[in-house]
Amino acid sequence: MAEARPAFQYAAIAQQREAATLGMWAFLATEILFFGALIAAYSAYRVSDPAGFAEAARHTRIALGAANTFILLTSSAFMAMAVELGSAARARSAALCLAATAALGLAFLGVKGWEYVLEYREGLVPALDFDLARYGPTAELFFLFYFFATLLHALHLAIGIGLTGTLAARFARGRGPREPVLRLVGLYWHFVDVVWIFLFPLIYLVGRSG
């Protein structure tokens, strides 16, 4: 691998890479608090009306949610593969894995979009066509959180897909960007997966037992 020179404020390239890694983890910490505030609000209301939340959550489609979770977990595996291959200078294989990651991400968005369409048809979208008489105000609150959280997650995922696709194109041309760019994008992607890992039970697995 060609020896890169560190930026002027760094003494060595390793130092610069460590700094970049720390910077990305610090950024991810801010994202944990960002999504966490939404989960705190959700929790406050779920504690206040657990039965209402359970009733509302039964209208989510567990099969689609589980499928999406599977898709995202698999995309993370491909991303981890891409990082390994990228640092072993196997650029074309890395490009393929990155393409797979991005494709799975797009599949996730597709499934999500389909879910949104179905929910719209059932009158479950607050501020748009929510059927208050049929479902009640607690359900409206639950679905408000549902759309808020999943839209925000989808936005983060879309950014991830953009980054991943761009990297895939770079690697496909034979050489990826210098370290640790791929690793940092990987960290971001995995984090978006972690967010979904927590959103899945909070949205889809409430009130399923009888």
Binding site: L22, A26, A29, I39
Partner: peptide
């Protein structure tokens, strides 16, 4: 430590709010 910090602080927020 950086990775843990975010989760730890989230735990603080959730605990004291509850």
């Amino acid at each position: 430590a950086f990775a843990a910090a975010g989760f730890f602080w989230l735990a603080i927020m959730l605990t004291l709010t509850s």
